[in-house]
Design a protein around this nucleic acid. Structure first.
Lengths: 200, 200
DNA sequence: TTAATTTACTTAACACTGTTAAGTGAAACA
DNA sequence: TGTTTCACTTAACAGTGTTAAGTAAATTAA
Protein backbone atom coordinates (compact mmCIF):
# COMPACT_ATOMS: atom_id res chain seq x y z
CA UNK A 1 0.00 0.00 0.00
CA UNK A 2 2.17 2.86 -1.27
CA UNK A 3 -0.75 5.27 -1.37
CA UNK A 4 -0.33 6.57 2.17
CA UNK A 5 3.36 7.12 1.52
CA UNK A 6 2.67 8.87 -1.76
CA UNK A 7 0.10 11.11 -0.10
CA UNK A 8 2.48 11.99 2.68
CA UNK A 9 5.15 12.76 0.11
CA UNK A 10 2.72 14.93 -1.83
CA UNK A 11 1.73 16.77 1.34
CA UNK A 12 5.39 17.46 2.04
CA UNK A 13 5.96 18.65 -1.53
CA UNK A 14 2.98 20.98 -1.34
CA UNK A 15 4.25 22.44 1.94
CA UNK A 16 7.64 22.95 0.31
CA UNK A 17 5.99 24.54 -2.73
CA UNK A 18 4.21 27.04 -0.48
CA UNK A 19 7.37 27.81 1.50
CA UNK A 20 9.42 28.24 -1.66
CA UNK A 21 6.93 30.70 -3.07
CA UNK A 22 6.65 32.53 0.24
CA UNK A 23 10.43 32.81 0.45
CA UNK A 24 10.74 34.05 -3.11
CA UNK A 25 8.04 36.70 -2.68
CA UNK A 26 9.37 37.62 0.76
CA UNK A 27 12.89 38.24 -0.51
CA UNK A 28 11.61 40.11 -3.54
CA UNK A 29 8.85 42.21 -1.95
CA UNK A 30 9.58 42.22 1.77
CA UNK A 31 7.71 40.86 4.74
CA UNK A 32 4.62 43.02 4.77
CA UNK A 33 4.05 42.83 1.03
CA UNK A 34 3.63 39.07 1.04
CA UNK A 35 -0.02 38.09 1.31
CA UNK A 36 -1.70 34.71 1.38
CA UNK A 37 -3.48 35.60 -1.83
CA UNK A 38 -0.22 36.46 -3.59
CA UNK A 39 1.33 33.17 -2.56
CA UNK A 40 -1.82 31.41 -3.72
CA UNK A 41 -1.67 33.19 -7.07
CA UNK A 42 1.99 32.30 -7.40
CA UNK A 43 1.52 28.58 -6.82
CA UNK A 44 -1.75 28.60 -8.78
CA UNK A 45 -4.03 27.42 -5.98
CA UNK A 46 -6.85 29.11 -4.15
CA UNK A 47 -5.92 31.07 -0.99
CA UNK A 48 -7.75 28.67 1.29
CA UNK A 49 -5.67 25.72 0.14
CA UNK A 50 -2.72 27.22 2.00
CA UNK A 51 -4.65 26.82 5.24
CA UNK A 52 -4.76 23.08 4.67
CA UNK A 53 -0.97 23.03 5.03
CA UNK A 54 -0.29 25.85 7.50
CA UNK A 55 -2.32 26.96 10.51
CA UNK A 56 -1.88 30.63 9.66
CA UNK A 57 0.43 33.11 8.01
CA UNK A 58 2.69 33.18 11.06
CA UNK A 59 3.41 29.48 10.78
CA UNK A 60 4.73 30.01 7.26
CA UNK A 61 6.99 32.84 8.30
CA UNK A 62 8.14 31.09 11.44
CA UNK A 63 9.47 28.36 9.17
CA UNK A 64 11.31 30.93 7.05
CA UNK A 65 12.57 32.49 10.29
CA UNK A 66 14.10 29.20 11.37
CA UNK A 67 15.52 28.49 7.91
CA UNK A 68 17.18 31.89 7.90
CA UNK A 69 19.10 31.00 11.04
CA UNK A 70 20.29 27.76 9.51
CA UNK A 71 21.52 29.60 6.46
CA UNK A 72 23.16 32.24 8.62
CA UNK A 73 24.85 29.60 10.74
CA UNK A 74 26.31 27.89 7.67
CA UNK A 75 27.57 31.26 6.46
CA UNK A 76 29.10 31.91 9.85
CA UNK A 77 30.87 28.54 9.98
CA UNK A 78 33.07 29.60 7.09
CA UNK A 79 35.19 31.33 9.74
CA UNK A 80 35.75 28.09 11.64
CA UNK A 81 39.14 27.44 10.06
CA UNK A 82 40.63 30.75 11.17
CA UNK A 83 43.14 29.90 13.89
CA UNK A 84 43.62 33.27 15.58
CA UNK A 85 40.47 33.98 17.60
CA UNK A 86 40.71 37.77 17.26
CA UNK A 87 41.02 37.52 13.49
CA UNK A 88 38.14 35.06 13.55
CA UNK A 89 36.06 37.49 15.59
CA UNK A 90 36.82 40.33 13.19
CA UNK A 91 35.90 38.16 10.21
CA UNK A 92 32.76 37.03 12.01
CA UNK A 93 31.76 40.67 12.36
CA UNK A 94 32.40 41.30 8.69
CA UNK A 95 30.37 38.22 7.76
CA UNK A 96 27.50 39.32 10.00
CA UNK A 97 27.65 42.68 8.31
CA UNK A 98 27.65 41.22 4.81
CA UNK A 99 24.87 38.78 5.56
CA UNK A 100 22.66 41.61 6.76
CA UNK A 101 23.36 43.76 3.72
CA UNK A 102 22.95 40.93 1.24
CA UNK A 103 19.82 39.55 2.92
CA UNK A 104 18.06 42.57 4.41
CA UNK A 105 14.64 40.90 4.55
CA UNK A 106 16.05 37.84 6.26
CA UNK A 107 17.94 40.01 8.71
CA UNK A 108 14.78 41.92 9.51
CA UNK A 109 12.88 38.71 10.12
CA UNK A 110 15.65 37.22 12.26
CA UNK A 111 16.53 40.15 14.49
CA UNK A 112 14.16 43.09 14.07
CA UNK A 113 10.53 42.33 13.34
CA UNK A 114 8.18 40.73 15.80
CA UNK A 115 8.91 37.01 15.85
CA UNK A 116 6.12 35.36 13.81
CA UNK A 117 5.00 33.02 16.52
CA UNK A 118 1.68 32.49 18.28
CA UNK A 119 1.75 32.48 22.11
CA UNK A 120 0.73 28.80 22.04
CA UNK A 121 4.01 27.39 20.82
CA UNK A 122 6.06 29.62 23.09
CA UNK A 123 8.64 28.27 25.50
CA UNK A 124 11.20 27.33 22.90
CA UNK A 125 13.89 29.25 24.76
CA UNK A 126 15.98 26.09 24.96
CA UNK A 127 15.89 25.24 21.27
CA UNK A 128 15.89 28.81 19.96
CA UNK A 129 17.08 28.79 16.35
CA UNK A 130 19.59 31.55 17.06
CA UNK A 131 21.16 29.77 19.97
CA UNK A 132 23.85 27.97 17.97
CA UNK A 133 24.79 31.25 16.37
CA UNK A 134 25.24 33.06 19.66
CA UNK A 135 27.15 30.16 21.15
CA UNK A 136 29.58 30.20 18.27
CA UNK A 137 30.21 33.87 18.98
CA UNK A 138 30.47 33.15 22.71
CA UNK A 139 33.11 30.50 22.14
CA UNK A 140 35.10 32.77 19.87
CA UNK A 141 34.98 35.50 22.50
CA UNK A 142 36.14 33.04 25.15
CA UNK A 143 39.13 32.18 23.00
CA UNK A 144 39.84 35.86 22.51
CA UNK A 145 39.87 36.29 26.27
CA UNK A 146 42.68 33.73 26.55
CA UNK A 147 44.78 35.98 24.36
CA UNK A 148 43.88 39.07 26.37
CA UNK A 149 40.97 40.72 24.55
CA UNK A 150 37.94 41.34 26.78
CA UNK A 151 39.71 39.52 29.61
CA UNK A 152 38.31 41.84 32.29
CA UNK A 153 34.66 41.04 31.44
CA UNK A 154 32.35 38.08 31.67
CA UNK A 155 32.26 36.11 28.39
CA UNK A 156 28.50 36.63 28.15
CA UNK A 157 28.77 40.40 28.48
CA UNK A 158 31.69 40.57 26.05
CA UNK A 159 29.80 38.50 23.47
CA UNK A 160 26.67 40.55 23.92
CA UNK A 161 28.77 43.69 23.59
CA UNK A 162 30.09 42.57 20.22
CA UNK A 163 26.70 41.42 19.00
CA UNK A 164 24.92 44.57 20.18
CA UNK A 165 27.38 46.87 18.48
CA UNK A 166 27.31 45.07 15.15
CA UNK A 167 23.54 44.62 15.30
CA UNK A 168 23.10 48.26 16.24
CA UNK A 169 25.24 49.36 13.34
CA UNK A 170 23.54 47.09 10.86
CA UNK A 171 19.98 47.75 11.97
CA UNK A 172 20.36 51.52 12.16
CA UNK A 173 21.69 51.42 8.63
CA UNK A 174 19.00 49.03 7.41
CA UNK A 175 16.25 51.17 8.90
CA UNK A 176 17.66 54.36 7.42
CA UNK A 177 18.59 55.93 10.73
CA UNK A 178 22.08 56.98 9.66
CA UNK A 179 21.16 59.86 7.43
CA UNK A 180 23.29 62.16 9.58
CA UNK A 181 26.26 60.82 7.66
CA UNK A 182 26.78 61.72 4.03
CA UNK A 183 26.12 58.59 1.94
CA UNK A 184 29.70 58.31 0.71
CA UNK A 185 31.09 58.39 4.26
CA UNK A 186 28.65 55.95 5.83
CA UNK A 187 30.48 52.76 4.98
CA UNK A 188 33.87 53.97 6.15
CA UNK A 189 32.46 55.22 9.47
CA UNK A 190 30.76 51.88 9.98
CA UNK A 191 33.99 50.04 9.23
CA UNK A 192 35.80 52.20 11.77
CA UNK A 193 33.22 51.21 14.39
CA UNK A 194 33.91 47.54 13.66
CA UNK A 195 37.56 48.28 14.43
CA UNK A 196 36.73 49.95 17.73
CA UNK A 197 34.98 46.79 18.91
CA UNK A 198 38.08 44.65 18.84
CA UNK A 199 40.33 47.41 20.14
CA UNK A 200 38.52 47.36 23.47
CA UNK B 1 -14.00 89.59 11.34
CA UNK B 2 -12.97 87.04 13.98
CA UNK B 3 -14.57 84.17 12.11
CA UNK B 4 -11.52 83.25 10.03
CA UNK B 5 -9.38 83.29 13.16
CA UNK B 6 -11.87 81.19 15.07
CA UNK B 7 -12.03 78.68 12.21
CA UNK B 8 -8.28 78.47 12.05
CA UNK B 9 -8.16 77.96 15.80
CA UNK B 10 -10.79 75.26 15.59
CA UNK B 11 -8.88 73.55 12.78
CA UNK B 12 -5.77 73.55 14.95
CA UNK B 13 -7.68 72.22 17.94
CA UNK B 14 -9.16 69.41 15.86
CA UNK B 15 -5.71 68.45 14.56
CA UNK B 16 -4.47 68.40 18.13
CA UNK B 17 -7.47 66.33 19.22
CA UNK B 18 -6.66 63.74 16.55
CA UNK B 19 -2.96 63.68 17.44
CA UNK B 20 -3.73 63.36 21.14
CA UNK B 21 -6.00 60.42 20.54
CA UNK B 22 -3.53 58.82 18.14
CA UNK B 23 -0.75 59.21 20.69
CA UNK B 24 -2.84 57.74 23.49
CA UNK B 25 -3.92 54.73 21.46
CA UNK B 26 -0.42 54.32 20.05
CA UNK B 27 1.21 54.20 23.47
CA UNK B 28 -1.49 51.91 24.82
CA UNK B 29 -1.88 49.50 21.89
CA UNK B 30 1.24 49.90 19.79
CA UNK B 31 1.83 51.14 16.29
CA UNK B 32 0.11 48.50 14.23
CA UNK B 33 -2.95 48.32 16.43
CA UNK B 34 -3.90 51.93 15.87
CA UNK B 35 -6.38 52.31 13.03
CA UNK B 36 -8.05 55.35 11.57
CA UNK B 37 -11.40 53.93 12.63
CA UNK B 38 -10.25 53.50 16.24
CA UNK B 39 -9.04 57.08 16.39
CA UNK B 40 -12.33 58.18 14.85
CA UNK B 41 -14.28 56.19 17.44
CA UNK B 42 -12.16 57.67 20.19
CA UNK B 43 -12.73 61.29 19.20
CA UNK B 44 -16.36 60.57 18.28
CA UNK B 45 -16.15 61.56 14.62
CA UNK B 46 -16.50 59.56 11.45
CA UNK B 47 -13.29 58.03 10.02
CA UNK B 48 -13.35 60.25 6.96
CA UNK B 49 -13.23 63.41 9.04
CA UNK B 50 -9.64 62.57 9.92
CA UNK B 51 -8.73 62.89 6.24
CA UNK B 52 -9.87 66.52 6.31
CA UNK B 53 -7.03 67.23 8.73
CA UNK B 54 -4.32 64.78 7.67
CA UNK B 55 -3.37 63.59 4.22
CA UNK B 56 -3.06 59.99 5.36
CA UNK B 57 -2.20 57.79 8.32
CA UNK B 58 1.53 58.32 7.79
CA UNK B 59 1.19 62.07 8.24
CA UNK B 60 -0.30 61.51 11.68
CA UNK B 61 2.48 59.19 12.74
CA UNK B 62 5.18 61.33 11.23
CA UNK B 63 4.01 64.07 13.58
CA UNK B 64 4.21 61.70 16.55
CA UNK B 65 7.64 60.61 15.28
CA UNK B 66 8.89 64.19 15.38
CA UNK B 67 7.29 64.86 18.76
CA UNK B 68 9.00 61.79 20.17
CA UNK B 69 12.39 63.22 19.26
CA UNK B 70 11.58 66.50 20.97
CA UNK B 71 10.58 64.66 24.12
CA UNK B 72 13.68 62.51 23.93
CA UNK B 73 15.90 65.54 23.44
CA UNK B 74 14.45 67.26 26.52
CA UNK B 75 15.00 64.07 28.50
CA UNK B 76 18.59 63.93 27.24
CA UNK B 77 19.31 67.54 28.16
CA UNK B 78 18.93 66.67 31.83
CA UNK B 79 22.54 65.51 31.59
CA UNK B 80 23.75 68.92 30.43
CA UNK B 81 24.84 70.03 33.89
CA UNK B 82 27.21 67.10 34.39
CA UNK B 83 30.71 68.55 34.20
CA UNK B 84 32.81 65.43 33.62
CA UNK B 85 32.21 64.35 29.99
CA UNK B 86 32.77 60.65 30.68
CA UNK B 87 30.25 60.67 33.52
CA UNK B 88 27.91 62.61 31.28
CA UNK B 89 28.35 60.02 28.53
CA UNK B 90 27.65 57.19 30.97
CA UNK B 91 24.53 58.96 32.25
CA UNK B 92 23.46 59.67 28.69
CA UNK B 93 23.65 55.95 27.99
CA UNK B 94 21.59 55.18 31.07
CA UNK B 95 19.01 57.79 30.06
CA UNK B 96 18.82 56.38 26.53
CA UNK B 97 18.31 52.99 28.07
CA UNK B 98 15.56 54.17 30.43
CA UNK B 99 13.78 56.15 27.75
CA UNK B 100 13.60 53.08 25.54
CA UNK B 101 12.30 50.87 28.32
CA UNK B 102 9.76 53.40 29.57
CA UNK B 103 8.59 54.35 26.07
CA UNK B 104 8.95 51.19 23.99
CA UNK B 105 6.44 52.27 21.35
CA UNK B 106 8.08 55.64 20.93
CA UNK B 107 11.48 54.00 20.72
CA UNK B 108 10.21 51.66 18.04
CA UNK B 109 8.79 54.54 16.03
CA UNK B 110 11.96 56.62 16.40
CA UNK B 111 14.63 54.05 15.66
CA UNK B 112 13.22 50.74 14.48
CA UNK B 113 10.08 50.80 12.36
CA UNK B 114 9.94 52.18 8.85
CA UNK B 115 9.83 55.96 9.08
CA UNK B 116 6.20 56.97 8.43
CA UNK B 117 6.95 59.29 5.55
CA UNK B 118 5.82 59.38 1.95
CA UNK B 119 8.56 59.69 -0.71
CA UNK B 120 7.20 63.14 -1.61
CA UNK B 121 8.36 64.97 1.45
CA UNK B 122 11.76 63.28 1.46
CA UNK B 123 15.00 65.21 1.52
CA UNK B 124 14.74 66.36 5.11
CA UNK B 125 18.26 65.09 5.82
CA UNK B 126 19.28 68.55 6.96
CA UNK B 127 16.43 69.09 9.44
CA UNK B 128 16.15 65.49 10.58
CA UNK B 129 14.41 65.44 13.97
CA UNK B 130 17.09 63.18 15.44
CA UNK B 131 19.95 65.40 14.36
CA UNK B 132 20.08 67.47 17.55
CA UNK B 133 20.13 64.30 19.57
CA UNK B 134 23.07 62.82 17.70
CA UNK B 135 24.95 66.11 17.80
CA UNK B 136 24.58 66.27 21.55
CA UNK B 137 26.14 62.82 21.76
CA UNK B 138 28.84 63.82 19.28
CA UNK B 139 29.79 66.85 21.36
CA UNK B 140 29.93 64.79 24.52
CA UNK B 141 32.17 62.26 22.78
CA UNK B 142 34.45 65.06 21.57
CA UNK B 143 34.81 66.27 25.14
CA UNK B 144 35.58 62.74 26.24
CA UNK B 145 38.33 62.58 23.66
CA UNK B 146 40.01 65.60 25.26
CA UNK B 147 40.29 63.57 28.45
CA UNK B 148 41.61 60.52 26.63
CA UNK B 149 38.61 58.30 25.96
CA UNK B 150 38.22 57.33 22.28
CA UNK B 151 41.12 59.64 21.42
CA UNK B 152 42.45 57.28 18.72
CA UNK B 153 39.23 57.39 16.68
CA UNK B 154 37.30 59.94 14.68
CA UNK B 155 34.59 61.61 16.77
CA UNK B 156 31.93 60.45 14.34
CA UNK B 157 32.98 56.82 14.56
CA UNK B 158 33.29 56.98 18.34
CA UNK B 159 29.82 58.51 18.68
CA UNK B 160 28.34 56.00 16.27
CA UNK B 161 30.07 53.24 18.22
CA UNK B 162 28.40 54.33 21.45
CA UNK B 163 25.02 54.82 19.81
CA UNK B 164 25.17 51.49 17.95
CA UNK B 165 26.03 49.53 21.04
CA UNK B 166 23.32 51.05 23.20
CA UNK B 167 20.77 50.88 20.40
CA UNK B 168 21.75 47.30 19.67
CA UNK B 169 21.34 46.36 23.31
CA UNK B 170 18.02 48.13 23.69
CA UNK B 171 16.50 46.96 20.42
CA UNK B 172 17.52 43.33 20.82
CA UNK B 173 15.93 43.40 24.24
CA UNK B 174 12.81 45.21 23.03
CA UNK B 175 12.34 42.75 20.18
CA UNK B 176 12.80 39.74 22.44
CA UNK B 177 16.06 38.59 20.90
CA UNK B 178 17.87 38.07 24.19
CA UNK B 179 16.13 34.92 25.29
CA UNK B 180 19.51 33.17 25.47
CA UNK B 181 19.94 34.84 28.81
CA UNK B 182 17.87 33.79 31.80
CA UNK B 183 15.41 36.61 32.60
CA UNK B 184 16.95 37.38 35.98
CA UNK B 185 20.44 37.80 34.47
CA UNK B 186 19.46 39.88 31.45
CA UNK B 187 19.58 43.29 33.13
CA UNK B 188 22.94 42.74 34.80
CA UNK B 189 24.53 41.53 31.56
CA UNK B 190 23.15 44.55 29.76
CA UNK B 191 24.54 46.86 32.45
CA UNK B 192 27.93 45.21 32.10
CA UNK B 193 27.86 45.94 28.36
CA UNK B 194 27.19 49.61 29.11
CA UNK B 195 30.35 49.57 31.20
CA UNK B 196 32.43 48.00 28.44
CA UNK B 197 31.59 50.91 26.15
CA UNK B 198 33.32 53.54 28.28
CA UNK B 199 36.06 51.33 29.74
CA UNK B 200 39.38 51.76 28.14
C1' DT C 1 -17.73 -3.34 -11.08
C1' DT C 2 -20.31 -0.43 -8.30
C1' DA C 3 -21.59 2.15 -4.09
C1' DA C 4 -19.89 4.63 -0.04
C1' DT C 5 -16.55 7.37 1.96
C1' DT C 6 -12.70 10.05 2.42
C1' DT C 7 -9.86 13.71 0.76
C1' DA C 8 -8.12 17.84 -1.81
C1' DC C 9 -9.55 21.70 -3.21
C1' DT C 10 -12.66 25.84 -4.31
C1' DT C 11 -16.30 29.40 -3.79
C1' DA C 12 -18.42 32.59 -0.88
C1' DA C 13 -18.34 35.04 2.94
C1' DC C 14 -16.95 37.70 7.39
C1' DA C 15 -14.69 41.18 9.76
C1' DC C 16 -11.18 43.96 9.37
C1' DT C 17 -7.85 47.64 7.01
C1' DG C 18 -6.74 52.55 4.46
C1' DT C 19 -8.85 55.62 1.52
C1' DT C 20 -12.11 58.15 -1.81
C1' DA C 21 -16.59 59.89 -4.00
C1' DA C 22 -20.77 61.64 -3.27
C1' DG C 23 -24.25 63.61 -0.42
C1' DT C 24 -26.23 66.55 3.60
C1' DG C 25 -27.37 70.16 6.55
C1' DA C 26 -25.90 74.04 8.89
C1' DA C 27 -23.09 78.23 9.07
C1' DA C 28 -21.43 82.29 6.59
C1' DC C 29 -21.98 85.59 3.19
C1' DA C 30 -24.43 88.43 -0.30
C1' DT D 1 -33.75 86.25 2.40
C1' DG D 2 -31.42 83.60 -1.10
C1' DT D 3 -26.82 81.67 -2.29
C1' DT D 4 -22.64 79.77 -1.39
C1' DT D 5 -19.28 77.70 1.36
C1' DC D 6 -17.79 74.34 4.52
C1' DA D 7 -17.57 70.62 8.09
C1' DC D 8 -18.96 66.41 8.34
C1' DT D 9 -21.16 61.78 7.23
C1' DT D 10 -22.70 57.70 4.55
C1' DA D 11 -21.54 54.45 1.23
C1' DA D 12 -18.36 52.27 -1.20
C1' DC D 13 -13.83 50.22 -3.19
C1' DA D 14 -10.01 47.34 -3.03
C1' DG D 15 -7.28 45.11 -0.15
C1' DT D 16 -6.09 41.99 4.18
C1' DG D 17 -6.27 37.21 7.16
C1' DT D 18 -9.29 33.63 7.94
C1' DT D 19 -13.45 30.35 8.21
C1' DA D 20 -17.74 27.71 6.68
C1' DA D 21 -19.81 25.29 3.34
C1' DG D 22 -19.86 22.95 -0.97
C1' DT D 23 -17.87 20.00 -4.92
C1' DA D 24 -15.71 16.70 -7.55
C1' DA D 25 -12.35 13.35 -7.80
C1' DA D 26 -9.59 9.63 -5.60
C1' DT D 27 -9.80 5.86 -2.61
C1' DT D 28 -11.91 2.20 -0.19
C1' DA D 29 -15.41 -1.26 0.61
C1' DA D 30 -19.23 -4.14 -1.22
Amino acid sequence: MGIAERKEREKKEMKEKILLSARRLFIRDGFENVTIRKIADDIEYSPTTIYLYFRDKDEIFFQLYKDAFDEFYRYQLKTANIADPVTRLRTLGEYYFSFAIENPEYYDLMFISVIPMKPLECGFETEHPGKKTFEYLLNTVKECQKSGLFKEYSPEAAALFVWSTVHGLVSLNLKKRMMQFPPEKTESVMREVLEIIIHR
